[in-house]
Amino acid sequence: MPGQKFGPAWFPGLIAVGLIVCGALLAVQTVRYRAPLVVLPAWIRSPRAVAGVVSVIAGLLFYALAADTLGFYLTAFLIQVVWMRVLGASWRVTLPVALVATVVIHLSFYKLLRIPLPWGIFEGFAF
């Protein structure tokens, strides 16, 4: 059976060998040039930047988990407000911009491009 010699494990196996070799070489390079193990980026000292990065990751996770239950409108509006506030926009600008962005993006994708964005608890108001 010539086909069996190169089964489904063959290709990932080759990649694994490559990664092990490259990893070892990189480790040797790091040790030789005495590079530090971990370098913290400069922005870690800015509270606004740290809060921003954390809020982006948390907000995307929140959307993935909550959108099906809460629906697109509520989830998208909430994370927009959090992001804009964390990045330093005032309430007066945040609320209208977040609302308009959510509605415009929903209408253009849901109506124009027919992407079934979830309604969640607002199922009764679906149009």
């Binding site: 995307l60 998208a76 927009q80 992001w83 990045l87 926009a89 962005a101 993006i105």
Partner: peptide
Amino acid sequence: APRELLLPVILLFCIVGAFA
């Protein structure tokens, strides 16, 4: 263009794109 508004809107755009 204010970045504090632009970045969140683009991110929402990304969400819809990845979902679609």
